[in-house]
């Protein structure tokens, strides 16, 4: 089927429009809050400090406090301060973020030898990749085993249930002591953050496999390892794939702590550092990049899933 034929399909078009709308709506809200002064703007940006000793040009003050100071200055016959309504520093306007986004990729880093934004990003992606890969290599087989064999589940799951509540970042120092200061401990944090959830989720998915399917296979002569590889695994594969897509998203949330462990690096370290100096335009730009990468990956994986699992009907319903 040609792409054009696909697009003219009205159902698809409607879906695409809704998809775009789901992005445009929040953007619209954000723009309204940013550009229409009376909607929120709880602060006043000082333009003329007047007679108030601590006011500086560009300072953000609570509106009430500003009015207080104006009244006080009037009473004391001091020069009146002036200002315009503004949003708090942590809510930059869309155009500021767009600009930060653009410059982030086009302007070389000021510091010699410092990584470009896209290099930081690439570094982060590699951390995620390795962390998720290692976690999956352990977690997926364990999950399938726990989901298939009750004995195995009873042996492993209580501990995993317990361990998954332990905060992954707390293992940072230990990870550094064992794996050094570079990417090792970061990857380890991603693994610790993902693995335990992964085992439980995949075990659950495995358990949800239709019992009749396994029984049918057994009556046809499948047993032991073959039952696992020829029936259980293919049977859960589309759901497993979906789980993995969700878990990959979780792995990203651990990145922000992982990148503060050992030497500082990567995109989320950039976010932390920029937030510390209150450059929220850069912070949001970087957050958006992560969003785009994450969402993009998921779209691609989703499309790939439809090709890989033509029999999976859960996908049609979305």
């Amino acid at each position: 089927m040609s792409l054009i034929a696909k697009l003219t399909d009205s159902e698809t078009r409607k879906r695409a429009l809704l998809g775009i709308g789901s992005f445009l709506l929040p953007l619209l809200v954000w723009s309204l809050v940013s550009y229409v002064p009376f909607i929120w703007h709880p602060k006043v940006e000082v333009t003329v400090p007047g007679g108030v000793d601590y006011f500086q040009v560009g300072m953000l003050v609570d509106r009430v406090q500003f009015e207080d100071e104006v009244a006080y200055a009037r009473e004391q016959h001091l020069a009146l301060p002036a200002g315009k309504p503004a949003n708090p520093i942590y809510l930059p306007a869309p155009h500021e973020v767009a600009k930060a986004f653009y410059t982030g990729f086009t302007k070389p880093p000021v510091q010699k030898d410092a990584p470009w934004l896209h290099e930081s990003l690439w570094h982060s992606i590699q951390i995620i990749f390795w962390g998720f890969l290692i976690s999956s290599l352990i977690g997926v087989p364990l999950g399938i085993l726990a989901g298939t064999y009750t004995t195995f589940a009873r042996l492993s799951e209580p501990f995993i249930e317990y361990f998954r509540y332990l905060p992954a970042p707390a293992f940072g120092a230990l990870a550094v002591a064992i794996l050094g200061i570079y990417d090792g401990p970061k990857i380890a944090i991603i693994v610790i953050g993902t693995l335990f959830q992964q085992v439980l989720i995949i075990a659950n998915t495995t358990r949800k496999l239709e019992a009749t399917i396994i029984e049918a296979a057994r009556t046809l002569g499948a047993r032991g390892v073959k039952l696992l590889t020829k029936v259980v695994v293919p049977g859960i594969l589309p759901d497993l794939y979906r789980d993995q897509r969700i878990l990959l998203g979780w792995a990203w949330t651990y990145l922000i702590v992982a990148e503060l462990i050992g030497t500082s690096s990567g995109i989320t370290f950039y976010i932390t550092q920029q937030a510390r100096y209150q450059h929220f335009d850069n912070v949001y730009a970087a957050i958006m990049i992560i969003g785009i990468i994450g969402f993009g990956t998921d779209l691609i994986l989703g499309g790939l899933g439809r090709r890989l699992f033509p029999w999976d009907r859960a996908q049609d319903r979305r």
Binding site: G172, A177, I181, L260, I261, G262, T263, S264
Partner: peptide, 15 residues
């Protein structure tokens, strides 16, 4: 380049 507390962790770990 480290976060401050991470740098002390790395030092304490002999890295």
């Amino acid at each position: 380049w480290f976060d401050y507390s991470a740098s002390m962790d790395a030092f304490a770990a002999g890295k």
